[in-house]
Computed example of a mutant assay.
Amino acid sequence: MMAAPLSIDEQVAAMKATWPQFAARRIDRRAQSARWIGSVRPQYSSYSLEIRYEVGEFPEVRVLTPELIRLPGNSEGQLPHVYPPAEDPTLCLFDPREREWISAMTIASTTVPWALDWLACYELWLMTGRWTGGGRHAGQDLGEARETTR
């Protein structure tokens, strides 16, 4: 039996309790959606993140600042493990095919820690050119997997 999705109020409360630096900028209770903005520092740099979520969908995480650096010609892609469009990528934080995230989970205990991990891997990738975060690479049906599990 599948657990019931958490309401947007439950998600907002969990984020406020766990990540107080993330402010809920827009909460639409009728649409069961919210948008948070906050800063994190996984290792070397600080990042401003935006998290958008609507109950029943996947959370979307964007890096607002600083702009993510691309490495043209990198064997793993100029910016690996993101969803298009290239000018406004969202971070690929989990494998939808494996049901690693469901709406009964809190964004606070999954999405934010996963974003921190992604950013740590990104910083290492910038230094070494190798993605150490695992997951399927571009060309391995990432977008298709995301779309078919919504």
Rank of each mutant, 00 (worst) to 15 (best):
A4S: 15
A4F: 11
P5K: 04
I8S: 08
A14N: 07
K16R: 13
T18E: 10
W19C: 04
P20D: 06
P20G: 05
A23M: 08
A24R: 05
R26A: 13
I27C: 09
Q32A: 15
R35K: 12
W36C: 14
P42G: 11
Y44P: 00
S45D: 15
S46H: 06
Y47A: 10
L49Y: 05
L49Q: 08
R52Q: 10
Y53E: 11
P59N: 15
E60Q: 15
V63S: 01
E67C: 08
I69W: 03
R70G: 02
L71M: 12
N74D: 09
N74Y: 06
S75M: 05
E76R: 01
Q78E: 13
H81G: 04
V82A: 06
E87A: 11
D88S: 10
P89Y: 01
L91W: 03
P96R: 00
P96I: 03
R99V: 13
I102Y: 01
T106A: 13
S109Y: 03
S109D: 15
V112F: 06
P113R: 13
C121G: 01
R130P: 00
W131H: 02
T132F: 09
G135N: 04
R136K: 14
A138C: 07
G139E: 06
Q140I: 01
L142I: 14
L142G: 01
G143W: 06
R150V: 10
R150L: 14
